[in-house]
């Protein structure tokens, strides 16, 4: 039982990070229908910038409490990422708003390559270590362990998501966003400056990405210029799982994805143990005896397969994700 609980806790932490990144994908998609492939790189830039700021502050021998140092890193990272996303939208996506659907997808891929290699030039190829500012103290929760850093990550992610929901549901900007998502032309006629709304979606997404970047780095203690790719992919998958374009869906998708993939794959390993089967071949039978009856077809090496398999199943039964609305076809 404590193993199960532990897996849930692990999943929850990682899931909150996925969810934050997924929100960036989903907001942009919801409004202009673009898969912003470069979003993962924004997370990476956020992590790298905050790392630079934090190490610089530590190096300058300024006697500040660690919380302030982290906060400083966070603020700079958020600002840099917001500027970056704004610029990216303006240069690479805005001119293509009327172009064929796949054109901005290719520029997004191009931007992703550019950002990665810029980061490589600036921060080098090596894995960078993040100083342990918050000593992870494990707390015992019903036999499972959860560090205070994990709690902080989950809490902060929850807070940010609540904040975003507030912005989208309760403010004028949020209303404009929702209107633009419904119908950009009509929204424009109603006096909404669509460009501002789209920029806002990018910028807010980038801010969340920067926070996620810092979280990932503090949590794992390392950063690398290539880290954005995999994270972005996972978050994108999460967004689709929840129903891309839907905020609650992104959060649900993020947490669900991280909870099902890893532990799920673990249990699949036990379930797909083939040694109990009658009429195995001789070779298999031998291997079973050699491994004390522990021969499973699928182990944790199939973790990603399992995650994608769940995704495909969900999409077969709910073609627009768990919480996605049934939208009209896009050309």
């Amino acid at each position: 039982m404590d193993t199960f609980l532990q897996q849930i806790i692990n999943g929850l932490t990682l899931g909150s990070v996925y969810a934050l990144v997924a929100l960036g994908y989903t907001m942009v998609y919801g409004i202009i229908g673009l898969i912003n492939f470069a979003h993962g790189e924004v997370v990476m830039i956020g992590a790298m910038v905050s790392l630079s700021v934090i190490t610089a502050l530590l190096g300058a021998h300024v006697q500040l409490p660690s919380v302030l140092i982290i906060l400083a890193g966070l603020i700079v990272a958020v600002l840099v990422c917001m500027t970056l996303a704004y610029g990216m939208e303006k240069i690479a996506y805005r001119p293509l708003r009327k172009a064929p659907r796949l054109a901005p997808l290719i520029t997004a891929i191009g931007m992703s390559i550019i950002l990665q290699n810029l980061a490589l030039m600036i921060w080098g190829r090596n894995y960078l270590t993040f100083p342990t500012l918050i000593e992870p103290t494990p707390h015992n929760i019903l036999g499972a362990s959860m560090t205070d850093l994990q709690m902080l990550i989950v809490a902060l992610a929850g807070l940010l998501m609540a904040g975003l929901v507030f912005i989208v549901q309760r403010t004028r900007l949020g209303m404009a966003m929702r209107a633009t998502a419904q119908n950009p032309q009509v929204a424009g006629l109603m006096g909404i400056d669509i460009n501002v709304v789209i920029s806002a979606a990018f910028v807010i997404g980038a801010a969340l990405a920067a926070v996620a970047g810092l979280m990932v780095m503090t949590y794992y203690g390392i950063a690398h210029y290539y880290m954005g790719f995999l994270l972005g992919l996972k978050a994108f998958t999460a967004a689709v799982l929840g129903g891309i374009g839907n905020l609650a869906g992104a959060m649900l998708g993020g947490i669900l994805l991280s909870i099902i993939e890893a532990p799920g794959a673990g249990y699949i390993g036990d379930v797909s143990n083939i040694c109990g089967f009658p009429c195995l071949g001789d070779t298999l039978q031998e291997k079973c005896t050699a491994s004390d009856g522990q021969l499973s077809l699928f182990g944790s090496n199939y973790q990603d397969v399992f995650a994608f398999f769940v995704l495909i199943l969900v999409l077969i039964f709910r073609p627009s994700g768990l919480l996605g609305e049934r939208v009209a076809d896009r050309a």
Binding site: N10, L14, I222, M227, P263, A265, G266
Partner: peptide
């Protein structure tokens, strides 16, 4: 070789 999270397998 690109993973950063090992908690699931470690827990197991």
């Amino acid at each position: 070789d690109k993973a950063t999270d090992f908690k699931a397998i470690l827990t197991k």
